[in-house]
């Protein structure tokens, strides 16, 4: 099994790919459409500004590849900015269109008593305990670093939240598409478990798929 880590010139991919490898799965850091579509799962990482990231995704054509992968029900996980990019739009430094794979928008934390960026270990609250991504896991702390957060339009897309003055979107998912606002690769044991769950879903899909093919 191999996971494609999408390289579109934003952020550090080393930690994510090493985390996948530590879980015993091959990680392929790539910006090549064929390689991405051939992989058993896709991770869209990202650190930096939303507008820059979308520009990179558009110029490289990788934004379309992400949409194509989602439509083909490829397991896709967006991490941090990578999760935000899955949504319709962001107000980070102006208005920007996102990939629109999931409905919703990215907004700035309101000014108030809470420090921005939201940085540090915060506790996950599971809203969908029966979601396959959370199977067998207990709620705990994970590591966040972000100044903008996601408001999903569809409530059932929200899998887990964290409390930072208000409930903040932490994990989203619909079908084979998932997103994590925190960094699972920097979130200790629970982070590695969550990443491991995603890899497990990729493996299950691969097996179902090869089973179907052998029956035909």
């Amino acid at each position: 099994m191999a996971i494609a880590i999408v390289d579109y010139g934003m952020g550090n991919l080393h930690s994510v790919s090493k985390a996948v490898e530590r879980l015993g799965v091959e990680a392929l850091v790539t910006g090549d459409r064929a390689e991405i579509m051939k992989a058993d799962g896709i991770i869209l990482p990202g650190v930096g500004a939303f507008g820059d990231a979308m520009e990179h995704l558009r110029e490289s054509g990788l934004g379309d590849v992400m949409k194509e992968a989602a439509a083909a029900k490829r397991p896709l996980l967006g991490i941090c900015l990578g999760m935000q990019l899955l949504f319709g739009s962001s107000e980070e430094h102006g208005q920007h269109d996102g990939l629109g794979i999931l409905p919703g928008k990215v907004i700035r934390f309101a000014d108030g008593d809470y420090k921005v960026p939201h940085m540090g270990w915060n506790r996950l609250e599971f809203l969908q305990k029966d979601n396959p991504l959370l199977a067998g896991l207990a709620e705990g702390h994970v590591y966040f670093v972000h100044s903008y957060h996601v408001l999903p339009e569809v409530k059932s897309d929200l899998i887990a939240v964290t409390d930072y003055g208000q409930p903040i979107t932490a994990i989203v998912g619909r079908g084979s598409v998932y997103g994590m606002q925190f960094h699972p690769e920097k979130s200790g044991e629970l982070g590695m478990e969550l990443l491991g769950q995603f890899l497990k879903l990729c493996a299950e899909r691969k097996n179902d798929h090869s089973l179907e093919q052998s029956q035909h």
Partner: peptide
């Protein structure tokens, strides 16, 4: 730093 980043899951 490079080796550590590959081995640990905390910042």
């Amino acid at each position: 730093v490079r080796k550590t980043a590959g081995e640990i899951a905390i910042p």
